[in-house]
């Protein structure tokens, strides 16, 4: 086919598909206007000058970044958020792998039932799920009463407004995000591969270590990335269950925006939080690049 003919064919294909492509425009417009531009606006806002009596002034400055990065209150909150995010991600992974493995081995009716158990929390708001923990761990709640009745503790202990509860509640919130991609990856591991491994002399553990585990990596990578990103920026749970004592980055950002009405500074904090999350994710992606490359589809 000559170059010219190729171009004619391509043009014909475009003409045939054009009406279809146009259907996508409203959604593209929606997301460009009300998703992409707001993010641009957030970055732009972080360079605006502060002002008294209104959210931001005219003129541009780098001072917000200097202030945010120079003050241990903010860098401390950022570090705490990143570390807690990493901890939550790790715990989610530990909990999710057995679930995903279990889910991927079920068939028919039971698969649907357990799938529903994992998926339905996704459809229930974070607030409600956190509230469930408040009920469970209240001083006169069932946990304390069971522990008292079992004689394991002498006085009810206070769990509410502790960092442990925040971590546990966030693990609870994000576990489905980890389970689903891992279960999908495990389902994509063809069963003959396990048969092949066994026929070559590998026992159950050996097959898991050499075949199943590496091949689940695309799911692990997706889950780890998603949970880390979401948990670093989680606002509601620490606000509701963490009390006033511990400052995480999202709470600091919201306080600046809503409490102090300091939009440019709040924006700078948000940008710093997003950039450092992105940096961690990038390092993780690069570090696991070889494995990901080998195990993708």
């Amino acid at each position: 086919m000559s170059c010219h003919e190729g171009r004619v064919a391509a043009r014909a294909a475009v003409r045939r598909l054009l009406p279809r492509l146009l259907l996508g425009l409203p959604a593209v417009a929606l997301l460009t206007l009300f998703f992409v531009l707001p993010y641009v606006e957030m970055v732009a806002m972080s360079f605006r000058a502060p002002a008294f009596g209104q959210p931001f002034g005219s003129g541009h400055t780098l001072m917000h970044y200097g202030r945010a990065l120079g003050d241990p209150i903010y860098t401390g909150a950022l570090l705490r958020s990143l570390l807690t995010g990493a901890l939550i991600t790790a715990l989610c992974l530990v909990i999710s792998f057995p679930l995903a493995l279990h889910l991927s081995r079920l068939q028919g009716r039971w698969h649907v039932v357990f799938y529903a158990c994992i998926v339905s929390p996704l459809l229930i708001g974070v607030l409600v799920r956190n509230f469930g923990w408040m009920v469970l761990v209240a001083v006169d709640g069932p946990f304390n009463r069971w522990l008292l009745a079992a004689g394991l503790i002498e006085r009810p202990f206070r769990v509410l407004f502790t960092q442990g509860l925040v971590v546990m509640a966030l693990v609870h919130v994000f576990t489905p995000f980890m389970v689903l991609p891992i279960a999908t990856a495990l389902r994509n591991v063809r069963p003959e591969l396990r048969d092949a491994s066994a026929s070559l002399g590998a026992g159950g553990w050996e097959t898991f270590r050499r075949v199943t585990l590496p091949l689940s990596f695309p799911g692990v990578q997706a889950g780890v990335t998603l949970v880390f990103v979401l948990s670093v920026a989680a606002y509601v749970t620490p606000a509701l269950l963490g009390g006033q004592g511990i400052a995480y980055m999202p709470a600091v950002v919201v306080r600046e925006l809503i409490g102090s009405f300091a939009w440019p500074f709040g924006a700078a904090l948000a940008v710093i939080m997003a950039a450092s999350t992105l940096a961690v994710v990038t390092v993780f992606t690069l570090a696991t690049h070889r494995l990901a490359e080998r195990t993708r589809g």
Partner: peptide, 27 residues
């Protein structure tokens, strides 16, 4: 199966997609 020492060739080959040719054979 792992104790039988039978070699199996599968219809769709069942090669381990994450392992090189060498590592597949050496498995």
């Amino acid at each position: 199966p792992q104790k039988r020492n039978f070699g199996v060739v599968f219809q769709n080959y069942a090669l381990f997609p994450h392992l090189s040719v060498f590592d597949n054979v050496a498995y």
